[in-house]
């Protein structure tokens, strides 16, 4: 359950990129989460809501893009999705491979609502 500390790190990144006066206008935070990043999207959403609920960022929601686990094989030169975490090429069985994607845990964008959108 390190999703809570991951959520806290996301809040800190928002605070660094968005001026304090605009925190309540943070509408969405776009994340990229890889298949072997070890983060459960539902738990992360729950944790993020839990720590922002009573704060100025209570309108913020997470938009998570799941990134598949892909490897490139240096033997048969294919790049393809593979069984999660497995380094052995599913086409030719070679282990001379490297990971192309799947370990991401990134904040890509923050969406700020127009001022009138959050006025009561």
């Amino acid at each position: 359950m390190h999703e809570l500390s991951v959520a806290q790190s996301i809040v800190e990144i928002i605070q660094q990129h968005v001026p304090r006066s605009e925190w309540e206008r943070v509408a969405a935070v776009r994340l990229k989460i890889g298949a072997i990043a070890g983060v459960v999207p539902e738990s992360l959403e729950f944790s993020f809501q839990a720590i922002t609920a009573e704060s100025t960022m209570s309108h913020a929601r997470l938009e998570i893009e799941s990134i598949p686990f892909r490897i490139h094989c240096h033997t048969c030169l294919t790049t393809a999705e593979n069984e999660i975490g497995v380094a052995q090429c599913s086409s030719c069985g070679s282990t001379d491979t490297n990971i192309i994607s799947g370990s991401e845990l990134d904040v890509s964008e923050i969406e700020i609502a127009d001022p009138e959108a959050v006025r009561p």
Partner: peptide, 15 residues
């Protein structure tokens, strides 16, 4: 609505 491009690792501070 405006978009701020961030492109940062979440665990950057730890790293």
């Amino acid at each position: 609505m405006s978009i701020i491009t961030v492109e940062r690792k979440v665990l950057e501070k730890n790293d």
